[in-house]
Design a protein around this nucleic acid. Structure first.
Length: 412
DNA sequence: ACATGTTTATGTCAGC
DNA sequence: GCTGACATAAACATGT
């Protein structure tokens, strides 16, 4: 509900049509929260929503740098609005907000297409349903940047991603394999072995200075946004929220015990239908028993066909091991006070120089600005122990996606 | 055993 | 159609 309010308020240019995805998400979240449905990562095949991919590669960094050269002031004005266009502002508050391709791309859902969807409407930190439109390389870079260290361990990369992208908290942990693969294969990343005798697993990773040159040379080309991946682990609940309620809601006709659709969920469904004009209840594709396969079979963007039978798309009994971080409900993901201002300009500089400064004095850190006053450096203090750092959850992307500033407090 | 790291294979997609 | 970027899967090696 809150997210819906966010969107309807924060996105004037998509008024009327934007809220659909969030309505879906919210509906599922409502079911999760109120019905206590345990997430199941197994039971559904993927579904997708078409989205542009302005951020699936690092091109935005380059563009942002070029554009940003003339827009520094603007960026400073609204740096915290990552992913959210400021009403009536030209400020490149975020690469997302500035990429024209991300505007007006149709959002498609089963049987419906919603125009005006924009990835910057999604709070990936709390939205476990939509796969962040960032490539793994981008995620790694984010982690490295966020660490404010020159080097970062693999486990910290994992932690950063799981802490800041809810999707990966609930996703099949295979994404970690992809991260490792990316680190090894991508020339942007350099492995720094631990010193002899230094405790801890694995080495450290840093970005290659040549990376910036690649960026500047246009090695990264614009690509279209990949289809939005709705977390398979959560689609089930989404469907449940959309499933028609029988006279006996707890009967065995598709709705298992404990997964009864409550009035709120029904209300959400109704609202959703009103928003979409679709009759999901009567949609034969949504009939019970066929729902698992009724969502458009979503091709993952890549990957060969799995060899292992356990990966069957529609396997219901699979309970995959989740990622390192314990699964958190959306509610559990609330992380302290809202931090603001993520210095994307600084991030850009870092990317272009290939350096991640250790100098606290450098403006690389997100800072809290309130009424023009710098309040606090938000980056976590390096942790002691086995040499790992940035393994706390202190750093988050809240400032990147925060919409709070755009809304009256009572709506938050 | 598990985490980490490397390598290979295969697939989709967009740009050319 | 070719190519590059990217994603996914998996086998394997190595270190803790």
């Amino acid at each position: 509900m809150l997210e819906r309010l966010f969107l309807s308020c924060a996105d004037p240019w998509t008024e009327g049509s934007v809220g659909l995805e969030e309505t879906l998400v919210t509906a599922a979240a409502e079911v999760e929260k109120r019905d206590g449905v345990v997430m199941d990562n197994s039971s559904i095949s993927s579904s997708s929503v078409i989205l542009d991919d302005s951020l699936t590669n690092l091109q935005w960094l380059l563009e942002f740098s070029i554009l940003g050269a003339n827009m520094q002031q603007h960026a400073h004005h609204q740096p915290h609005l990552f992913g959210h266009q400021q009403v009536g502002s030209d400020a490149p508050s975020s690469p997302l907000a500035r990429v024209p391709a991300s505007i007006g791309m149709p959002l498609t859902l089963p049987g419906i297409v919603v125009h005006g969807h924009c990835p910057d409407e999604v709070d990936y930190k709390t939205n476990a349903y939509i796969k962040p439109p960032y490539s793994y390389a981008t995620l790694i870079c984010m982690a490295m940047q966020a660490s404010k260290k020159s080097e970062i361990t693999l486990s910290c990369i994992y932690k950063y991603i799981t802490d800041n992208f809810c999707y990966y908290r609930h996703a099949d942990p295979n994404w970690q394999n992809s991260i490792r693969h990316n680190l090894s294969l991508n020339k942007c990343f350099i492995k720094v072995p631990r010193k002899k005798g230094e405790p801890g697993k694995g080495g450290f990773w840093k970005t290659d200075p040549q990376y910036a040159e690649r960026l500047l040379s246009g090695a990264y080309k614009n690509r279209r946004m990949p289809p939005v991946h709705i977390n398979p682990a959560l689609q089930n609940r989404l469907r449940l929220s959309l499933q028609p309620q029988s006279t006996d809601p707890c009967s065995t006709t598709g709705v298992q015990e404990g997964q009864c659709i409550n009035p709120e969920s029904q209300q959400l469904l109704q609202e959703f239908e009103e928003a979409t004009g679709a009759d999901w209840c009567s949609d034969p594709h949504l009939d019970e028993g066929t729902m698992l396969g009724s969502w458009p079979v979503v091709r993952e963007r890549g990957g060969k066909k799995r060899k292992r039978s356990l990966s069957s798309e529609n396997e219901v009994t699979k309970v995959p091991r989740l990622s390192n971080s314990p699964p958190l409900s959306v509610d559990e993901q609330e992380i302290g006070p809202v931090e603001r201002d993520f210095d994307w300009e600084a991030l850009l500089d870092t990317a272009l120089t290939g350096e991640v400064s250790l100098n606290v004095a450098e403006p690389l850190s997100p800072i809290i600005r309130e009424e023009g006053h710098m309040l606090e450096n938000l980056w976590p203090v390096e942790e002691q122990g086995d040499g790992d750092f940035f393994c706390s959850s202190n750093v988050n992307l809240e400032p990147l996606f925060n919409l709070e500033d755009l809304l009256p407090l009572h709506l938050v």
